[in-house]
Design a binder for these strands. Structure first.
Length: 373
DNA sequence: AGGTATGATTAGCG
DNA sequence: CGCTAATCATACCT
């Protein structure tokens, strides 16, 4: 619906223009050729035999894409198939309808062209027949010869048809790759979605591997697909690990966020005269990872968040943070980080620490140094 | 324009 | 099959 689509339009227009240019002269030249060589050598015959595999492939594909199939159902079927092929995304219906529209366009062009060729074929056949009939007055013409002529004509036209099919296939492929190859057309998730994902990630930092169900839920919440969630976590894990310093700020932020909510809950609980803190917001799948927690994070948290916490709550918060897998400790703060920590826990990542993991991208100092973003 | 962020894809591993 | 690591291709920012 933006620039890409326009370019697609152009591309398609070009494509079709090209097709038309390719077809028409071909047709004419064939006609001329046949006229001249009134049934002598069969020059185009090598192009396809009756069970031409390529033609079959094209036919199958056109059918599968809904171009040559039934009018209406074909389109949506194709769109569905395409969606399935692209990874089962049933989301952005807008784009799919757009896709379908384009596909319909292609189909229409295909059908009109096809019709035209058929018609031309018939016309030309009768024309040649007439010619032959005329000639038959001056010279004997065997039925066999006529038959052969007709055969030649049909073969020629079907080879043109094949070109049509081929071009249509190409157009469809282009359309598909344009629309369905998400990589080409990547769009960032919504701010909200990223927020949700990050929240989950940082509150499960000790074990950021959402279960299938969790993924589904996240997917639903973010209105993205499960595989997108998986992708996101895959990317996030690897990138986080690669450059923890860079994510420090973010980590603090989200930790603070969850901590705050937790704190509220805890506060409520405390008010309820309960000293327990069973309130880790997200199911406590953490556990296995125990890092020593430093106060740093908390301080940052305070400053980042602007909220002021008072004495007793501080401890509670620390506790909560600990529970939530507060992992932020020395890491971003530069010197202290050792990638070993990650592995040690057997939690995520196994040892493959490539030599250059701990690039000290970030200078010393305060956790929120640059914010170059 | 160039750099960075980011979502998706791919090869390879267990 | 899910994961990591590397890479691609685009979006977004400067």
């Amino acid at each position: 619906m933006t620039i890409t689509d326009q370019s697609l339009d152009e591309a398609q227009a070009k494509k079709h223009a090209l097709n038309c240019h390719r077809m028409k002269p071909a047709l004419f030249s064939v006609l001329c050729e046949i006229k001249e060589k009134t049934g002598l050598s069969i020059r185009g015959a090598q192009e396809e035999d009756p069970p031409d595999p390529q033609l079959m492939r094209l036919d199958n594909m056109l059918l599968a894409e809904g171009v040559s199939g039934p009018e209406k159902g074909g389109g949506s079927a194709a769109a569905a198939a395409a969606a399935a092929a692209s990874g089962g995304s049933s989301d952005n219906s807008i784009e799919h309808s757009d896709y379908r529209a384009k596909l319909t366009q292609i189909r229409q062009i295909y059908h009109t062209e096809l019709e035209k060729y058929e018609q031309a074929c018939n016309e030309f056949t009768t024309h040649v027949m007439n010619l032959l009939r005329e000639q038959s007055r001056t010279r004997p013409i065997s039925p066999k010869e006529i038959e052969r002529m007709v055969g030649i004509i049909h073969r020629k036209f079907s080879s043109i048809q094949m070109q049509l099919k081929q071009s249509t296939c190409e157009a469809v492929m282009i359309l598909r790759s344009r629309f369905l190859d998400a990589r080409r057309k990547r769009r960032n998730f919504s701010k909200q979605a990223t927020e949700i994902l990050n929240e989950y990630f940082y509150s499960h930092l000790s074990n950021p591997y959402p279960s299938e169900e969790a993924k589904e839920e996240l997917a639903k919440k973010c209105s993205i697909t499960v595989s997108q969630v998986s992708n996101w976590f895959g990317n996030k894990r690897i990138r986080y690990k690669k450059n923890i310093g860079k994510f420090q700020e973010e980590a603090n932020l989200y930790a603070a966020k969850t901590a705050v909510t937790a704190a509220h809950a805890v506060a409520a609980a405390v008010q309820n005269n309960q000293t327990n803190s069973p309130t880790t917001p997200n199911s406590g799948s953490s556990g296995s990872f125990n890092l020593p927690n430093s106060g740093d994070m908390f301080m940052n948290m305070q400053s980042l968040n602007g909220d002021s916490y008072q004495g007793s709550q501080v401890d509670t918060l620390r506790h909560v943070i600990n529970q939530t897998g507060g992992y932020s400790d020395g890491l971003g703060g530069n010197s202290l980080y050792s990638p070993h920590n990650l592995n040690a826990n057997g939690g995520w990542q196994d040892a493959t620490t490539p030599s250059s993991v701990t690039s000290p991208t970030e200078g010393p100092g305060s956790v929120h140094s640059d914010t170059s973003n």
